[in-house]
Design a protein around this nucleic acid. Sequence first.
DNA 1: GTAACCAGTTACCGAAATGTAAGTAGTTAC
DNA 2: GTAACTACTTACATTTCGGTAACTGGTTAC
Lengths: 114, 114
Amino acid sequence: MKDKSDATCEKVHFAIQDTLYVVNGKWKLLILSILVNNGMKRFGELSRESGISPRILSKELHELELNKLITRTVCNTKPVTVEYSSTAYAETLKEVIDAMIRWGQNHRKKIIEQ
Amino acid sequence: MKDKSDATCEKVHFAIQDTLYVVNGKWKLLILSILVNNGMKRFGELSRESGISPRILSKELHELELNKLITRTVCNTKPVTVEYSSTAYAETLKEVIDAMIRWGQNHRKKIIEQ
DNA sequence: GTAACCAGTTACCGAAATGTAAGTAGTTAC
DNA sequence: GTAACTACTTACATTTCGGTAACTGGTTAC
């Protein structure tokens, strides 16, 4: 260790693992970025716009809801529609999402330049 | 879409997926955070401090090296030791790493409070 | 009554990620 | 020569992830 105590290192270790545990996989951060940046979406819209199949999307939305990152609202339309929105808590992930978007855009540039 | 064109949404989509592709899995961001925040580490140190088994650590380090995020230096010690360091390019990921550390620490607090 | 739309769910499958345990290879100390 | 240290690699098993296809259930329009 150069400049941090063992305990601090351990905290950092846990912190990263905790975050990864909540937003793991290929899709959760993408779904959140769509909802956080564009507001409410219906199930079908999310599926089409993200390219996620219904089975996976359904599972991911359940998990995000369990972690209080999105809300699910059933609307009294005919046929029924369901609206998914990001919660205020999900806004706290915006920092992570935006950092990843910026890095990905920059990385793509770097790769193309070569 | 509320405030963004389809093309912009698509770019955001790609950007997130690109980032996830480079730092996928349970371990890469943890390894990078250790190297970025604490400087050079040897193979054994990394394995012990992160709790990653040699097999996985070796694979992850190879992939990080391929993406120019770390460098591998063999030292003329007896027995030979190998030093891993983060590159300048890895520093550009610090924004993502630090955002994840902050979010994870805050999230853990939230969970414990309940 | 049959086709269509919405929001899923179920069954099944293959690939990828991760883990454990043991082994390799070079060097040093006793 | 045997044990111990370094840095891995190999073989194997298991778990998790993600994908396709088909199906359910409720409603509406024709």
